[in-house]
């Protein structure tokens, strides 16, 4: 039972990470294309300013929870995906510092460097996380000892790339809506128009991904076994359609919540399809890592469950307070503060 609870929690941590940092990664990728001048760039930086760091911790916690609850999965995943994960790490490093560094020197060239770092540090993680998760859905070539028989390019198969593109598109729409929420006038209109256009691509690639998954993976099998699970893809479809409806009505916040629903349900869709496996093996299904053969001892799972039960609600509580504090638009007055990015 504890193994199942931790598997669900594992899925929730990743889903919340994608939902929250997803808009940062999308907004950072869009920034060079959407902002026409330095002021608009600063609006985008400050739209993420107070929030991105707290969002990124969901990734660290998802990683930490994998380590604590499923150490063998953690070891096999990080060892096998060595190059991809270190690339992700470097990207996140240059993204993180660009916020703090950009405004610290008055020079065009200096700002360009950090604008590029924000872009590449946002785009690459979006792509790599998509590629990594699609590959996990598809299964990795791991043997009975968990040793990965492949390299970085093993991951760049068509299905993996499809997952990468879908993640980038999901985050672009999510980020464009966030920019619209936090900006006014011309920038907001452009952000909304970009979200509206990219939404069509998001829809097309979501459909392609779901169909190809039926051939490239066995994720759909669980949906045959447990019909109740169909609620997940149905909610995902609802979220995706609602994004468009609210975008057309220019209801920014509702569109953002719809996009959040879509991202969370899309993640759940894959995670539910994996159950009870965490990393399927493409060499032999017997070698797959599951929530049973890769988990921690019952005592550790219990201790960690108590910790999560106490602290995760507290974290959610103060993060909601903080989002509420920063829900307003970025005004000229806010940009004039010396602390602003």
């Amino acid at each position: 039972m504890l193994n199942i609870i931790w598997f669900v929690l594992w899925g929730v941590l990743w889903a919340v990470y994608f939902m929250l940092d997803g808009f940062d990664l999308g907004a950072g990728t869009l920034m060079p294309f959407l902002a026409k001048n330095d002021k608009e760039k600063r609006v985008i930086y400050n739209a993420m300013g107070p929030l991105w760091d707290g969002n990124e911790v969901w990734l660290i916690t998802a990683g930490g929870a994998t380590f604590a609850a499923f150490p063998t999965t953690y070891a096999v995943m990080f060892n096998g995906l060595y190059s991809a994960l270190l690339l992700l790490l470097f990207a996140l490093i240059v993204r993180g510092v660009s916020f703090e560094f950009r405004g610290k020197v008055e020079s065009e060239g200096w700002k360009k460097i950090w604008d590029f770092c924000l872009f590449i540090g946002s785009f690459l993680p979006a792509l790599l996380l998509g590629v990594a998760f699609a590959n996990i859905f598809r299964g990795l070539p791991i043997d009975e000892n968990g040793i990965f028989h492949g390299g970085f390019f093993t991951l760049l198969n068509p299905y993996g790339l499809l997952g990468g593109i879908l993640f980038v598109l999901m985050f672009l729409v999510h980020g464009a809506i966030w920019i619209a929420i936090k900006s006014e006038g011309d920038l907001r209109n452009r952000a909304l128009s970009v979200a509206n256009k990219i939404w069509y691509l998001e829809l097309i690639f979501a459909v392609i991904f779901l169909v190809v998954s039926a051939f490239a993976t066995d994720l759909w099998e669980n949906y045959g076994k447990y019909p109740l699970l169909w609620i997940i893809p149905l909610l995902a479809v609802a979220g995706l359609i609602l994004i468009k409806i609210f975008l057309l009505k220019e209801k920014d916040w509702k569109a953002w919540f719809s996009s959040s629903l879509f991202i969370v349900m899309a993640t759940f869709w894959g995670v539910a399809g994996l159950f009870p496996r965490m990393i399927p093996s493409t060499i032999n299904p017997e070698y797959s890592l599951t929530i049973y053969n890769s988990s921690s001892s019952p005592l550790t799972l219990k201790v960690m469950f108590i910790v999560a039960l106490i602290f995760v609600p507290i974290v959610i509580g103060y993060q909601i307070w903080v989002y509420n504090l920063f829900k307003g638009k970025i005004t000229d007055k806010e940009l004039s503060y010396e602390e602003a990015y």
């Binding site: 911790v57 930490g64 380590f67 609850a69 150490p71 550790t300 960690m304």
Partner: peptide
């Protein structure tokens, strides 16, 4: 990981 991983996860949470 059974011992060490949980300490890291608690640190994050």
């Amino acid at each position: 990981g059974d011992v060490f991983g949980s300490l890291l996860a608690i640190e994050a949470t």
